[in-house]
């Protein structure tokens, strides 16, 4: 087994996450798709760190996690706010800015 197979797995997970963002309408599921994409990149980071023998890749993955955590807090708060006012968690309903 080649180490690059990890990268292949990361690519597949990333694409699935992206497809989730495109295809699902529930904002929470869409959000989980985004998280999946972030995790896929983390896997790629970790793999590259191993390939190059440099822990900086892991540090970057760490930063991604932290930022993702912050993003989740704000994103979910926004979803809740929208849900409160519109009784819906569908991203298709949030197109008020479009005339």
């Amino acid at each position: 087994m080649e180490i690059t197979h990890y990268l292949g797995l990361a690519a597949i997970l990333f694409a699935i996450g992206a497809a989730t963002v495109l295809l699902r309408r529930n904002a929470i599921v869409v959000f989980m798709g985004v998280e999946l994409m972030l995790n896929a990149t983390n896997l790629a980071f970790v793999t590259f760190a191993r390939i190059h023998g440099d822990v900086t890749g892991q540090v970057l993955a760490f930063f991604v996690m932290v930022v993702a955590a912050a993003e989740v807090v704000v994103g979910l708060a926004i979803i809740i706010t929208i849900f409160r006012s519109r009784r819906s968690a569908s991203v298709d309903d949030v197109n008020l800015l479009h005339s």
């Binding site: 495109l22 991203v91 949030v94 479009h98």
Partner: peptide, 14 residues
């Protein structure tokens, strides 16, 4: 193209 749907925009980005 500016149809107001987030998913369309995401598709464009992707």
């Amino acid at each position: 193209m500016q149809n107001g749907y987030v998913r369309s925009y995401a598709a464009t980005m992707l």
